[in-house]
Amino acid sequence: MKRVSAQGWNGLFAGVLAVCVLVVIGTGILSVTTLIVESVPSIRQFGLSFLWTPVWDPARRQYGALPLFYGSFLTAVIALLLAGVIGVTTAVSLTQIGVRWLRSVISLLLEILAVIPSVVYGVWALLVVAPLFGRWSGQAGGPSGEFAVSGFGVLAAGVVLGVMVMPTVVAVTREAIASAPKDIAEAAIALGATRQETVALAVMPFVRKGILGSLYLGLARAFGEAVAVSLVIGDQPRIGGSLFARADSLASMLAHTLTGSASPLQTAALYEIGLLLFLITTVFYGLGRSYIVREAISPRFQPW
């Protein structure tokens, strides 16, 4: 008799837990549905041409996503170039060269870089990054200690994004290096290979997929970042030729215009942007995850 009731309790408990799972998955479905439903007026109005219309002009009720794609892609590419080169080399040096205490200090610093909120990055971007580029591009900078009045643009946003994405690249690449077979690297060393030869011939061939995965994850993060980008990209949805030109990205546009949206059509267009953002980041994130096989499970901090 007692056993039966214990089984009943177990079933009930499992049922409650299963409901929680359904709630979690339900929030995802609800989110996608909401984005689709809200963007219907814009999809009806503009159709597929929304994707390549090069004008975003609320005054003329013309909405096209091309300028935003331009800003997003360009900033993400700059960010990935920076984070890819610096991040991968840093991951290699954190695993292959250097003294132990220095390695652990540097990896601690990089972990801290990953927890810093994007608004705080925004403050840093306004204080340090934008004035730097303002000086470079020959525009007048603001007085020191105050926020930048120049230097906004694609390049500044890309650099800030690069810094934000870098911890992800380092962490994923490091994990890939750690899971590469050790015996081959040791064999290379035993045969008299230098550090450089060992890394190039016996470590890197096993890490390529991991690096590719980390870059895709970085791309997803770079596309989705709204707050820090919107503070320095210049908030002007247009396709300029220069890296110093002001522009706007998908996520940044959402951050600074949605609440002040003038018409229902603009709101719908913004929700369509959100839907596109969802699709893009999901594809990149999924691609990235498909390259990364996570075996070692530990309670370490995972910045991606």
């Binding site: 995802g28 989110s31 989705g224 969802f278 995850r289």
Partner: peptide, 15 residues
């Protein structure tokens, strides 16, 4: 869950 955790946080605000 993995896919959902990669969704940009600003979209949660929009929803």
């Amino acid at each position: 869950v993995d896919i959902l955790s990669g969704v940009p946080s600003i979209l949660a605000g929009m929803v």
